[in-house]
Each structure stands twice: as C-alpha cells, then as structure tokens.
Design a binder for these strands. Structure first.
Lengths: 114, 114
DNA sequence: CATTAATATACGCGTAGGAGTATATAAGGT
DNA sequence: ACCTTATATACTCCTACGCGTATATTAATG
C-alpha cells in the first residue's frame, strides 16, 4: 500500500489522527475513545508510524503517540491545483461543512448522493 | 467504499483528477494521456462521478468530464485541524512539539540499572 | 440501415488489507 | 519471583476492489 492517500482512506486511522490533533495519547486512550480493540489500534498506529503520520515516545509501559505533520502536508500540497475551484466560493464551503459535520457517528447509514 | 478519502486512495483516480484540474477531457483523452485501458478509465470515472468528484457533459459520442470541487473541499476541510502543525514557521512548530512533550510532568523512573 | 467510433457494463480472477482471537513481549508494582 | 498492565505481533478468515477480456450501448456517418 504505502501511499499517503491510502493510509488515510481508513476511517479508524483518520479518527486516530483527529484524536491526536488535539494532544498526544496512549494506545489505551485511543482504544477507549474510539471503541476499537487494542490490537486494531496498535496495528493502525503501526501503519501510521511507518508512513510517518505519527511518532511515539515511551512513558513507562505506555507509548505516547503524537502527530507528525509531513505526510498530511503532502496531501495539502496535492490539493493545491484544485483550490482555484473553490477559493472563490468560500460561502459555499461553509454551507457544505455545516452539512457534513456530524460529530457523533452513531449508526447512520451512508448518505446518498444528491 | 463510498468514502471521499477512499476514492482518492486510487493512484489512477488521482491522476485523472489532476488531469482534469487543468481542463475538461474526454474518456479517450484520459485513456491516452495516462496509458490506461478504456474500461479502466470508464470505471474510475464512474466511481469519481458517483462520489461527486467529476461531472460529465455530452459532446456527440464523447463525454467530456470536468472537476466538481465539493468532495475535494471536504478533504481540505478535514485537514484544517492539522494545519497548525505546519502553517506557522518551523520554530513555532518545534515550540509546539516541545509543549506536547511536557504536559505530563516527568515521572520517569529514577535511574536505570545497566 | 450498416458501420464505425466512443463509452459503458458484465464477469471472473487475484490479491490486499481489515477484523477478531490468541499469544508474545515488556515494564511496574507488591 | 509473581501478577497485572500496556502494547505488539501472529494468524485465519472474509470481503472489497482493481484489472483484463469480452460484450453492450449509443451516437454519428455514409
């Protein structure tokens, strides 16, 4: 796999990154916050670490994980050529964000296209 | 699949989007520029279209495809919380990382044997 | 209409990768 | 020395998806 984009295609991995955006966390923290099994968290963290999205630090038996920004900067850079399509319509963006920001992913089915 | 991020995990799809960033193109154009088989291009375009990344217009027997920006705006929006990691200067980034290291007061174990 | 061009769809194959379970490793506490 | 806590790894199963080939559809052209 190894593509930067493929890494963040995984919903759990995006959730982990979003969690780490605010502050560093241990594996157990992530496990609990995201309701994932521990092996699953460890596996995703391994993928994220090997792809450079996160770094870890040892704290006793814990490993504290934190964001490493470089791969996300790549994504940001890839978007550059497309920004001209929406930089003019900021208001449309805000309308769209209101629609998609659904903080608690309960059990909703995938939303359909218009 | 259905996730915006999963769609652009595919290298060929990203290549198609990048091609369309400059101007609209027919299926045959894309096929030739990217050296892909025609069914492959059509399939990717279908995925992109159903996910809202592109729109098409009929021109005789041809279908001209062009960028539709909304899904890419979602990606851009998702990156927002991470921009603080790189939007400032490098030294600011380093200050931030130092800060993230501190909040758990050093509770390192006394001394290691060895 | 028949033919050609342009694009879309169907189908089978192969493989990557995520989930779950079990187990290994490592560090701390008592 | 045990036992618990925290994290990592191994392994199997299962499904999704990209690819290639073949065929269907739709439109233009003669």
């Amino acid at each position: 796999m190894e593509s930067t984009f493929a890494i963040i295609a995984e919903p759990s991995r995006r959730a982990i990154l979003s969690l780490l955006a605010s502050c560093e966390r241990s594996v157990g923290d992530i496990e609990e916050k995201l309701k994932l099994t521990q092996p699953s968290v460890s596996k995703h963290l391994r993928v994220l670490r090997e792809a450079g999205f996160v770094e870890s630090r040892v704290d006793a038996q814990r490993r504290m994980y934190r964001i490493n920004p470089e791969p996300l900067m790549e994504i940001d850079a890839w978007l550059a050529p497309f920004r001209r399509f929406w930089s003019a319509h900021v208001d449309a963006l805000e309308r769209h964000l209101d629609q998609m920001d659904q903080p608690t992913p309960k059990k909703r089915k995938a939303r359909s296209k218009r």
